[in-house]
Amino acid sequence: MTEKPEDCLLMVWSNQRSRDIEFDRANDLVDGGAISCATNTSASQFQAAIDALRAAARSGDKARMLEQLGLPLLYIDGDGEEVELDDDQVDALYDEVFDARLIDAIERLDLSRMTVVPERGGFFELGSIWLVVDKAGGRPRLVTVNRQALDEAAGAARRKAQDRQGEPVPDL
């Protein structure tokens, strides 16, 4: 990646009607690099998507949550099996995919804890939640839920908490 973040931001802003220049400049750099260079959109667009996802998760409203998805939704179960879900499949498997643990993870999304991968999007919780931009300057959508990664992230968090408390960490 040879682009300078400021150059990427200028390109991204050229594709947006409204801009939050101060927020974008202050929040463009995350793990993996500049949001604008890696994803072709701005930090403020990711923040808007995160806010909408958190609000939908907190509301408990299935329809509101489904509005935040990019379809097909790639779902990776706890055993690593992948399936691309369309509208009907997401609706039928909603309670499995969006269980209490995933909803809790969505409610805790924080832009500063996002990692970006050039041309692939931004992810959270060791890759358990992926947001992808489909239009330059546009708002990201949730496109991947990886249950296997979410389980690994939960295990890592438990081990970290136990380490801080000085308790022995059990073998997994």
Rank of each mutant, 00 (worst) to 15 (best):
D151E: 15
F23C: 02
A63N: 13
K135Q: 14
P5N: 07
D134Y: 04
I129H: 01
R25D: 05
M65P: 06
I106M: 08
Q148V: 06
V97N: 10
I129K: 06
A49L: 03
D31R: 07
E107C: 15
L93Q: 14
I50G: 05
V30T: 12
R147Q: 13
D91E: 10
V132Y: 03
A63G: 04
D171L: 13
P118M: 09
R113C: 04
Q162M: 15
E84N: 05
G80R: 02
G60Q: 10
V133R: 00
A43G: 09
R101C: 05
S36P: 03
Q89N: 15
T41W: 05
K135D: 12
R108I: 02
D28G: 02
L9K: 07
P5G: 06
A154K: 00
D104K: 14
G137A: 11
S128F: 08
K62W: 03
A57Q: 05
A43F: 05
D61I: 11
L93M: 12
A92H: 08
S44R: 03
Q45G: 06
A63Y: 00
E96H: 12
Q45Y: 05
V132Q: 08
R113E: 12
R54A: 04
I21G: 03
V133E: 01
E81Y: 11
R108T: 13
K135T: 15
S36K: 00
G70P: 09
F46I: 07
A100H: 06
V169E: 03
L69D: 05
N40G: 04
E84K: 10
S112L: 06
W130G: 00
P170V: 10
Q89M: 14
Y75N: 09
A48S: 15
A157R: 13
D104Q: 12
G122A: 09
D171S: 15
A161M: 12
A157Y: 01
A105R: 13
M114W: 06
L74N: 08
G122M: 12
R158S: 11
A92T: 09
G60S: 05
I103T: 15
R120I: 00
Q162E: 09
E82L: 08
R58A: 15
V30Y: 08
R147N: 15
N146M: 10
V133C: 02
D151M: 13
I21Y: 12
K4C: 02
L73D: 10
Q16E: 10
A156K: 07
I21L: 08
G138R: 02
V12T: 12
A136V: 06
Q16I: 09
W13H: 11
A157F: 03
N40P: 02
D87T: 14
R159K: 11
L150I: 04
F23H: 13
V169G: 08
D163V: 05
D110W: 13
A49N: 03
F46W: 09
A136I: 04
E152F: 14
V132N: 00
P118E: 11
R25M: 12
A43R: 02
T41L: 02
F123N: 09
R158W: 02
L102G: 13
D7V: 11
M114R: 01
L93R: 15
L85H: 01
A157P: 00
C37T: 01
G60H: 00
D99S: 07
S18D: 07
D91A: 11
W13C: 00
P118A: 11
E96C: 09
V117R: 07
L73W: 07
